[in-house]
Design a protein around this nucleic acid. Structure first.
Length: 274
DNA sequence: TTTACTGTTGCAGT
DNA sequence: AACTGCAACAGTAA
């Protein structure tokens, strides 16, 4: 379930459910997903309480009294919360038991997700090594550095935006949406965008992600994310709409592969290549 | 039954 | 250094 808006809704839900709770026990069912490895990870957490729920790009941060858990959901990671008994789940990877008897289970069918435990003083270096761009909000994502970055790259704009360096948080759904919104073909070289297009793109990144957060993210081909179902899927203009009419011009939405990723466009509205 | 597809990222190889 | 292709894995749909 993870692009920035989905991770943000998980963050909000977790804040309601586990903030302030004390970790009484940790069970690791898939040790390979975590650093440090199982035993050390689990014992570092015992007795700590959850002091904040934060997010950086698509990374979810559970801040504890003495350190932080950085959780990345990758393709299929999900959290489940239980007050009482925890149902059997073959895809459960980690389970946190809190001292009040509630439980938080991390489930991940495809096992791509990661969970790292850091000391507080390691956080800065951790995210620095990821080379994450700014958060896609007005106060952090500035137009000038963005367009300067664009001008330095001959890469197609879609893979350029997907690599998280220009701006954090876009994934395959929302990158297609922002390019549609700003009428830019995904194969256009980054440096070929006009001033006007770059401006429109910059603005679209901010507004589309803000709308998606407001709608609780998209719930697509999987259900629940901690009980909350997002409604952003009802507002998507191109993603998952292959063959359906463009809401602006009526031309059927097309789908093709770009850099290994399914890519959705309106060929009428997004010119420049194709 | 095979093959292609899937809200991601990091790494090896140009 | 920037960029491309692919692997990590499991389930679903055609």
């Amino acid at each position: 379930m993870p692009e920035l808006p989905e991770v943000e809704s998980v963050r909000t839900s977790l804040e309601q459910l586990v903030l302030g709770k004390t970790i009484a026990n940790v069970s690791v069912f898939y040790p390979r997903m975590m650093r440090p490895h199982a035993d050390e990870f689990a014992s570092a957490l015992l007795g700590q309480h959850v002091s904040a729920l934060r997010r950086r790009g698509k990374y979810l941060i559970l801040e504890l009294s003495g350190g932080l858990i950085v959780s990345h959901l990758r393709m299929s990671g999900k959290y489940f919360y239980h007050e009482g008994e925890v149902p059997l789940d073959k895809h459960a990877r980690v389970q946190f038991d809190f001292s009040d008897g509630s439980h938080l289970v991390y489930q991940d069918v495809r096992k791509f997700g990661t969970m790292d435990y850091l000391n507080k003083d390691e956080e800065a270096a951790y995210f620095k090594s990821k080379k994450l761009g700014p958060e896609p909000v007005q106060e952090a994502f500035f137009y000038q550095p963005f367009i300067e970055g664009l001008k330095r790259s001959s890469r197609a704009i879609k893979p350029y935006l997907l690599d998280q360096k220009a701006v954090a948080g876009l994934g395959n759904i929302y990158v297609d949406e922002v390019l549609y919104q700003s009428r830019i073909h995904p194969e256009r070289p980054a440096q070929s965008l006009s001033q006007k297009e770059a401006k429109a793109l910059h603005q679209a990144i901010i507004t589309v992600l803000a709308l998606a957060i407001e709608k609780g993210g998209s719930t697509i081909r999987t259900y629940e994310n901690l009980g909350q179902k997002g409604s952003m899927q009802d507002y998507l203009q191109v993603y998952g709409r292959e063959g359906q009419p463009c809401r602006r011009c009526g031309h059927p939405i097309e789908k093709f592969k770009l850099g290994g990723r399914g890519t959705h466009i309106c060929p009428q509205c997004q010119k420049g290549r194709s």
